[in-house]
């Protein structure tokens, strides 16, 4: 039991936190801009490299430098929206989807050019795990990631339900034409969507980079699981996406636990397929997700 919590449940919740923070942005972009943003994982990568670079200059704990990574990801997202996505806004959204594939490659190749394709570490050395009640051993990063994600989820919920900008975002996601009729500035809402989505992606990217290493494919490799989480939570339902992220994270990690007999239920090398399979199954059987999201 203790072993299960220490080696499976806590890492699963950490992975879930990463997916959750990425999936929120995907869900919000899907809801407000109405397209599947295939460069979202690479936005995470950009954020992680931002923090990596900041750590070189200011050697403090990487989590304290998240604002640098977030700022870089936000700048990248706003620039890409301005120059690549906005000119396509009046066309069928599929053109924007294709464009976002290209943007994903632009981000990745820039990361490879500027920071090389090597695996790089955010934190050097080993931090001893936190020991709770003498038995639970939790890596500091895991505790931080899970706690920070929950704080962000609460803050985001309050922002979306209480603030004028948050309600405008939900209104545009709900009925874009009516939002225009009500005089809401859609472009401003879109800019805010990118700011929030990119900032959360950067945080997810830093978590992922600290958990393993920072490399150019960091975000891309996590992206499909994040799509699965966003769909699971229901498109346009940010809180659903957070829940979806944790569910997918749990499903992927726990599928390798030895539930039956001594062997893992699923070979760890097929772990990532679990997320894909959930996504494909959802698309087929319940595309509106568990929490009654919207269909495009």
């Amino acid at each position: 039991m203790i072993e299960f919590i220490n080696y499976y449940l806590i890492p699963a919740l950490t992975l879930g936190s990463i997916y959750a923070l990425g999936a929120v942005g995907i869900s919000m972009i899907f809801g407000i801009l109405r397209f599947a943003h295939f460069a979202h994982g690479d936005l995470m990568t950009v954020g992680a490299y931002g923090v990596l670079t900041a750590v070189w200059f200011v050697p403090v704990h990487p989590l304290l430098l998240i604002p640098v990574g977030a700022a870089l990801a936000i700048a990248a997202a706003l620039a890409v929206d301005r120059f690549f996505y906005r000119p396509l806004r009046q066309l069928a959204t599929i053109y924007t989807v294709i464009s976002s594939f290209g943007v994903a490659l632009i981000f990745r190749s820039l990361a490879q050019l500027l920071w090389s394709s090597d695996n790089q570490v955010l934190v050097k050395g080993v931090t001893p795990p936190l020991v709770l009640f003498g038995t639970f051993r939790i890596a500091a990063l895991h505790a931080e990631a899970i706690a920070l994600t929950l704080v962000i989820a609460v803050a985001l919920h309050l922002f979306l339900t209480r603030s004028k900008t948050g309600r405008s975002m939900r209104a545009v996601s709900d009925e874009p034409e009516l939002a225009a009729v009500a005089g809401i500035d859609t472009e401003k809402v879109i800019r805010w969507t990118w700011v929030i989505a990119a900032a959360l992606a950067a945080i997810a990217g830093v978590f992922a980079g600290m958990d393993t290493t920072v490399h150019p494919n960091l975000g891309w490799n996590l992206q499909l699981a994040m799509f699965a989480a966003a769909i699971l939570g229901g498109i346009g339902k940010p809180m659903g996406a957070i829940a979806g992220g944790f569910i997918i994270g749990l499903a992927e990690e726990l599928s390798t636990y030895n539930w039956v007999g001594d062997n893992p239920l699923i070979s760890p090398s097929y772990k990532t397929a679990v997320g894909f399979l959930i996504m494909v199954a959802l698309l087929i059987f319940r595309p509106q997700g568990l929490f009654r999201g919207r269909l495009l």
Binding site: R167, A171, E175, L178
Partner: peptide, 8 residues
């Protein structure tokens, strides 16, 4: 048509 925000 669609004159309210249904999820709000």
């Amino acid at each position: 048509n669609r004159n309210v925000f249904p999820n709000l």
